[in-house]
Amino acid sequence: MIALIQRVSKARVDIDGQTVGAIDQGLLVLLGVEKGDDDAKAQRLAHKVAKYRVFSDNEGKMNLNVSQVAGSLLVVSQFTLAADTQSGNRPSFSSAAPPAEGERLYQHFCQHCQSLGLPVATGRFGADMQVSLCNDGPVTFWLTA
């Protein structure tokens, strides 16, 4: 399971011109689910995202997590994170989880983040989404479980 997290001052997801999820300060989480991922990996990654210290303290050092700055998560499914790009000019998605399992684990990840006390907004699994964000820093990290 892969999470590409971006520290944002705001972010939103639109589908067919309608905003379906939006946050102010927090983390945009692009979530990729791979074959072999399970509930335990989703929970480990949710804990990692929740506790990852990427927000600045009073001294300007990255010492605070999303909860400590009263931030939110915007979680967007992105199967392309599971792409194999090692050869050729076209990515292979053979390592991505099948859609039904990917959606189940995406929902499990989001629910676990909520159980950790984080406000969570989402996109819609499998939809054609337009994601807008203001990356604060810019700060972007690739996390795995």
Rank of each mutant, 00 (worst) to 15 (best):
K41N: 15
S67A: 12
A96L: 10
S56F: 15
K41L: 08
L27D: 00
N89Y: 11
D57L: 08
A22Y: 01
L27H: 02
Q18W: 10
C110H: 00
G71S: 12
E101Y: 05
A145C: 13
L118K: 00
Q114T: 12
A70H: 09
G88W: 08
L118H: 01
C110W: 01
V49Q: 05
R44P: 07
Q130G: 10
F55Y: 11
D38T: 14
K35F: 11
L116E: 04
D16V: 05
P99A: 07
A100R: 14
Q130N: 03
P98E: 12
G102I: 02
F55P: 10
V75R: 02
P99C: 07
M1L: 12
S132I: 00
T144N: 15
V75Q: 02
E103Y: 02
G26Q: 06
G36S: 10
A82W: 07
V8T: 03
S115Y: 03
A46P: 06
Q43P: 01
Q43Y: 07
D136F: 10
A97I: 14
N135R: 07
D24T: 12
V69R: 02
E34Y: 11
V8H: 05
N89R: 12
N89E: 07
V54S: 03
K10Y: 08
T140F: 02
G71D: 01
A50H: 14
Q130C: 04
Q130P: 00
M1Q: 09
R124E: 13
A145D: 15
D128T: 14
T80D: 13
G26H: 00
C134K: 03
K10D: 06
T122K: 08
D37C: 15
A121S: 11
Q130D: 08
I5A: 00
D136Y: 03
M1A: 06
D16F: 11
I15Q: 14
V131R: 07
K35D: 07
L118S: 00
V20W: 00
S95Y: 13
S94P: 14
S67C: 05
F109Q: 02
T122M: 05
R12L: 09
Q114A: 14
C113P: 01
K61Y: 15
T122E: 09
S77W: 11
D84L: 03
S72T: 07
V20L: 03
L105G: 10
R7N: 05
S95P: 05
L81W: 02
Q6D: 01
H47K: 14
G137S: 09
C113W: 04
N65Q: 07
S132C: 07
L74Q: 02
G21P: 03
K41V: 09
G88Y: 10
E34S: 14
R124V: 10
V66L: 04
S67Q: 15
D14I: 04
